[in-house]
Design a protein around this nucleic acid. Structure first.
Lengths: 191, 191
DNA sequence: CTAGCGTCTGGACACATGTCCGGTGAAGTG
DNA sequence: CACTTCACCGGACATGTGTCCAGACGCTAG
């Protein structure tokens, strides 16, 4: 009875949703983001299109959910002995690599996250908050939750950098491996 | 006989394209990016849908062209007496404000720029190059064209920041006025 | 056993998207 | 003045998107 999709879900429903998100990943891997259809995903998951639309209002919603699921199952930020710089780089790299198994998936997420459906908006807020929280606790493991003005500015810059990197990669300006490295460079400059 | 749309254009065609891009701006202002249809734009421009599709392969292509036109008519970067920091801030602000008249238009551009049509890709490359060039000549008016490794890293960070800011604004995390100010903060941190 | 409930199904819908093609009118050319 | 060429037109098409609804299926309770 705990899910984030369209409403509270029973165990059975959770299974269906699970099959859908898994199928979505396979589908985008197989056919790219063009040719990625809710109906196709449904078929791959062995589910009727109407059922898929019961849980996901749109293609974007579905892909965003995939991203969200991966993000929210990350382990807590490790307060390692190294400095903030190393921790921040690690956090960014972790998030950048979330969907980089297959570039198509990453591009799909980039586009999907920008969708205008209310469901996407909702998930987007959660995603933004989560990333911010992770970055903050990498910056300053102790006073997590109440950033100083200075930390706020750095945080802001980091968020911009991450989103920008995602976009650049999504547009094909650079690969995802490059992206992580360049993000590290940006952190060097900022901290 | 000089245009960037689908092929070289006669004067008459250039006029039609012009009417289309203008109508696109009005349309997105009036109805938002949902409800924004090539057919609607065509009607507003007093042009048949088929004609519109002669010049623009897609919605995204059309919106991207609007952005490109605004960007490419900016005056050259002014090598002002102030420092690089002020020049970079000015350049970023200028670009950020290109489409911020109406938030809807900006959101539309953000999405459109990520499209996968070949035409969008082409324009995207030009846009990326132009922004990079402008940033570089703000950073270092003299040696424009051959950035040092250090300049390259800063340039990279600035590009990420710009793209990230655009996305954040497009997602509704912040307004476009805020966006310009936050970009200025990022520049402070970087330079 | 049967009734009820939750879940999934199949198909029809209204609409958008991008392509294609035969045709029309108005410029430019001899 | 005929004749070609060029830009535009109108509409049909195949495909995709998201919604809706009547009904089928299986599980659980009485």
């Amino acid at each position: 009875m705990t899910e984030s999709t369209r409403r509270r879900l029973s165990d059975r429903q959770a299974g269906t949703v699970r099959r859908l998100t898994d199928a979505a990943v396979e589908e985008v891997r197989a056919t790219g983001f063009d040719g990625f259809t809710v109906r196709n995903v449904a078929r791959r998951a062995g589910v009727a299109p109407a059922t898929a639309y019961t849980y996901f209002t749109s293609k974007n919603h579905l892909v965003t959910e995939v991203f969200w699921r991966r993000l929210s199952t990350l382990p807590p930020v490790r307060p390692s002995p190294e400095g903030p710089r190393e921790r921040v780089v690690a956090v960014l790299r972790e998030i950048a690599l979330l969907v980089s198994d297959e570039p198509e998936l990453a591009a799909a997420c980039t586009t999907a996250l920008l969708g205008s459906d209310p469901d996407v908006q909702e998930l987007r807020l959660r995603i933004g908050k989560t990333i911010r929280r992770r970055l903050l606790s990498a910056l300053n493991p102790d006073r997590a939750g109440r950033p100083t003005p200075e930390e706020g500015r750095v945080l802001n810059a980091l968020e911009f950098a991450y989103a920008g990197a995602l976009v650049h990669a999504g547009m094909g300006y650079s690969s995802y491996a490059e992206m992580a490295d360049r993000l590290a460079e940006v952190v060097e400059l900022l901290l």
